[in-house]
Design a binder for these strands. Structure first.
Lengths: 333, 333
DNA sequence: CGGCTTGTTGCACTCGCTTGCAAAAATGGG
DNA sequence: CCCATTTTTGCAAGCGAGTGCAACAAGCCG
């Protein structure tokens, strides 16, 4: 059971009867090689099953082509679709994604970034959690790019991609108002991340502007189960809400199911619901949920484009619009 | 804008006043270093923010710690949860996952494996698609391990993890029979992968054994949308089925929604449904779907354990049981 | 034919790390 | 205190690739 039977540039060179540099050059775009040698080298490489060792190349060039995706709970529909978009587009830009799972503990985001440094990743994209400033500084100092998606906090040197959450929330309020709703509620988790809070703020602010009260309830994390609990809390109130903006779709699904199956409410006639993310399930006919679409492809495109730039550039913050997707969980439309 | 400001072992050595071998040894478990030098080295490393360069280490040791996950449509609930389990467990075994997305074309699985070779991945885990034999041979010859999950075909040298699909299908048939169903149908996609076909086979076989006819319908891919189409086809038949085994949960959700919303059928009183995978949505109260659970943690554990073995071993095939999860989409239970 | 440009090639050094080997230091027993 | 044994340490040789530099070949012009 021989182990290290990788074929190296040396082997190819020998077979092709050229120097090692020649084969190196054939695989380096824009290097000076004659047509003849190139042919002989590629031929030999083909025959031997040679592939440039990206580890060694990365070592020399001091850039590995690796981009770390740092994420927790990656089986959540929105996260998963973002990862799909990111990996796809990274590959088109001939980079490769390393996936770091930070489910375990909170400091594991920091751990993850250390891993990223160890593998000399060219960049890290953070989808969940928020690393210490000390560690992000270390990353930046190591020449690593940093992209923060929906994490809002300020980190200069990093690219921050956010949605216009406040505005989306306001538009949602207006839509619900037009649908004839009068008792507004906001169903939030206790996660309190900046983007979730921005949605809450925006919705409240819209309520104030229209002189209408907004009931806010927060519970657990942004899951289906929390949605059920929030339904319980909101729908048993003396003044039962007839419009609920849920901080994300998963939660909205749980809330709708509870509203229908436990409280026998008809949607949208007795209760209007709006969600956020536009996960696949939102389009399922059991939910048919009016929601705001996260522009996952745009997000991924912005991130990858920024990574492809030679100079980091200054305008390192992108605020994208969430598009309202009208479906049947709100009257009218 | 200086680029390569990575701190190397040399830097640490200088600061700690030792040789560069000493610092290398401090970071190599089981190497001979005195307590004193180790202390000084770690101290200096800490101060400088040093991290072992895994690229260089991988180059020397000829093993990178990288495991490639090759997958398409990774935002599918089952896939996503498998990836989550795999990344988590790989990290616990101090390996790291590279995610390769093969959504684009069919030969991109081969492309992906080439990437794996280029990065000198220690192993590749294939969750979707089936690579050419030529390329798998190349992988194995390069000393790379290969794990195939739910891909069934024979590739010796690789670890194959499959479920006992036939048996699950048979158990499903019996459960439906006990529930009093008499008109059985199997809703399949046109994907025709071995594991999906094994479910169909198993279900049909069980039907034959009990002298009952099984209607089989196939359409599209294994998605929610296909489920709706299949409902359309199956529920408009002259002899309407009262029991449908769906090849996976996603499809089952689509079928149930169509059955309820378009055909006004009550589940389980007028129609019993069984799915496969036990994705999160199966437990949502709108579906409450009786289904077979993919033991994702077990699968991941088996894969990682095998990768951790020193010698590949011979019993390179695992057949796991899918556990039946009883919920409300089948009467009785 | 000499001198020049242009294009190719190979040598040798470098990247950051591991590791065998031999020298040096520490330990212990008599 | 000396010698044998065990640890610890540094040197130097790789791992597989990229690249500046100089040597060389070829081609062109006068």
């Amino acid at each position: 059971m021989s182990r290290k039977i990788f074929v190296s540039a040396k082997d190819v060179a020998d077979r092709a009867g050229v120097s090692r540099s020649a084969v190196s050059r054939t695989f380096t775009p824009g290097a000076s090689v004659s047509e003849e040698t190139r042919r002989r080298v590629t031929e030999a490489a083909e025959a031997l099953g040679y592939h440039v060792n990206h580890l060694a190349r990365g070592l020399m060039r001091n850039e590995s082509g690796i981009v770390c995706l740092i994420v927790s709970e990656l089986d959540t529909p929105y996260r998963a679709s973002l990862i799909r978009a990111l990996t796809g587009q990274l590959q088109s830009a001939s980079k490769i994604a390393m996936l770091i799972n930070t489910d375990r503990s909170d400091d594991s985001v920091d751990q993850a970034l250390r891993q990223a440094i160890s593998y000399r990743a060219d960049a890290s994209i953070i989808l969940s959690g928020m690393p210490d400033r000390s560690i992000t500084d270390l990353c930046l100092k190591s020449g690593q790019r940093l992209v923060l998606i929906n994490r809002d906090e300020d980190r200069d040197g990093a690219l921050m991609i956010n949605l216009n959450d406040r505005d989306a929330a306001r538009r949602s309020f207006i839509a619900l108002l037009r649908a004839g709703c009068r008792n507004f509620a906001f169903a939030n988790s206790e996660a309190m991340t900046p983007s979730l809070m921005a949605r809450e703020e925006g919705f409240r602010a819209a309520g104030r502007e229209h002189g209408l009260e907004v009931t806010v309830e927060r519970f657990g994390s942004t899951t289906y189960q929390s949605g059920a609990v929030l339904a319980q809390r909101l729908l048993t109130r003396e003044k039962r809400p007839d419009a609920i903006f849920c901080v994300n779709d998963l939660l909205a699904c749980g809330l709708m199911d509870a509203a229908r199956h436990q409280f026998n409410l008809a949607i949208p006639s007795e209760l209007c619901v709006v969600g956020f993310d536009d996960i696949e399930q939102a389009s399922w006919s059991s939910y048919n949920l009016t929601t705001f679409a996260q522009p996952v492809d745009r997000i991924a495109a912005e991130a990858v484009a920024w990574l492809d730039q030679v100079t980091p550039g200054e305008a390192n913050s992108r605020r994208l619009e969430a598009e309202l997707v009208w479906r049947g969980s709100v009257r009218g439309g």
